[in-house]
Design a protein around this nucleic acid. Structure first.
Lengths: 246, 246
DNA sequence: TTATTCTAATTGTAAGACAATTAAATGTTT
DNA sequence: AAACATTTAATTGTCTTACAATTAGAATAA
């Protein structure tokens, strides 16, 4: 039997069609890798033109819900939403959310470290040699004198990624991707002096040591210290800017 | 000066145009509430047809990056991504991620409670009377005997939302929305006996008491207990199902 | 059998037309 | 002059038709 797609009765057609198909996917009536009817067939089923169907499909494609293939056996297929795709979606959304809503640095920072703190006990317990090696490598990079602020921040993100991934829980990693990565633009606005870098690396080393020793409490302490230090740093930068402009 | 939108040189046109516009928004070259050129103008600027431009715009609309208005002064406008919209996007993505990737209940559960645990210290410190009242009200509802499993789970979600929101950090609330809400379908698969409900309500009461007393450590303990009890419950349900089918 | 060509299906893109909607300009009446 | 009604222009939403590009599979030839 051919499937039918219940549709709402108000709003733009392409939106209604997209919603109908999305519901079918979310509710499992269309399963992963299943091929949707061709655009022509969809147009007939919904009683609309092909361009309208296409607009609806593009909406779904933007959410990575479907992929399309050209050619004889082509069409639109229900996508298995990979963790990787979900990561990047989440990072985009989080970044926009932070930049558009005047979220102050302190709030974002607090959220980020609170979430990381949640990972610490698991990470201390389960971290592999790989995770430890990544953390050490990033610490080493952060010690290079010629490193730009952007690269320093990127390395910072990589370090914390390793910490989070060490928990060995992909759901946790996914949820945290946004929080950690979206902070980078905000972090980039802080100019790191050699002195402050040194201290941050110190905190990182303390965290890595604690994780290696599987000492959860110690790692949490070091993380908390890093959090408050980062916030202080941001406040100082802001204060300096105000002094300079007045 | 009219803005130009740097475009990549491979892939589908509508995708490239969408990416070019998205970059302009993310990088701040198009700011909130700014009006994009009309579809006609965009088509000319990019050297493509209007339907192609429209497909690109639908992609952006699907991500809540733009909104469109008809009429004389209509057009596409850069959207301020609200926390509310970001919530629902995140919930949809998280739900799909969980349902499509065979994430086992234990992993999802672990992630959820680890994240909630991150909120507890802040929530214990900052929770308002409102948050406490919501938690108490949901506990009361969960005690009603006639409550369906779905309603019980929904109330459970509401309770934990209040716990998370109590931290008073919108970024944290946003990040957790996915983790908590996306769990509901998984939770719904557990049939709650009267006995198990009673115990869950007991944990909830302990959490609410601890939060009210601003005792963070106690709340964390109760949350951890709830976590392991929930996982046990799920394991039992699974074991029973296997017994029944064999 | 293997390689090549053809064919049909499907998506990607284009062009033009008309409908629906909306705000502003214009006209009309009191 | 002010309030109200009408027209107008701009813009998005949708439809129709057509063609290009791509791809798998079938048909064909070596």
């Amino acid at each position: 039997m051919t499937q039918t797609y219940p549709m709402t009765t108000e709003g733009e057609l392409s939106l209604r069609i997209a919603s109908a198909l999305r519901d079918a996917i979310v509710e499992g009536r269309l399963i992963v890798d299943q091929r949707l009817p061709s655009e022509q067939e969809l147009a007939e089923q919904f009683g609309v033109s092909r361009p309208t169907v296409r607009e609806a499909l593009k909406r779904l494609a933007a959410q990575n819900l479907i992929r399309t293939q050209r050619g004889a056996t082509g069409g639109a297929f229900v996508n298995r939403l990979s963790f990787h795709e979900a990561y990047s979606q989440q990072i985009t959304t989080s970044t926009l959310l932070l930049s558009m809503n005047q979220v102050d640095f302190e709030t974002a920072c607090e959220a980020r470290y609170a979430l990381e703190r949640a990972c610490v006990p698991l990470s201390a317990q389960r971290r592999t040699a790989d995770h430890l090696a990544t953390m050490r490598a990033e610490i080493h990079r952060q010690n290079q004198p010629g490193l730009s602020d952007e690269s320093f921040c990127a390395s910072d993100v990589a370090f914390h990624r390793a910490l989070v991934d060490g928990a060995g829980n992909p759901v946790l990693s996914y949820q945290l991707a946004g929080a950690v990565e979206a902070m980078q633009p905000l972090m980039n606005m802080i100019t790191f002096s050699a002195r402050s870098r040194e201290r941050i690396v110190g905190f990182h080393t303390a965290i890595a040591d604690a994780i290696e020793a599987q000492n959860s409490a110690l790692a949490e302490t070091a993380l908390a210290a890093l959090c408050s230090y980062t916030i202080d740093l941001a406040n100082n930068v802001r204060a300096q800017r105000q002094t300079r402009t007045t």
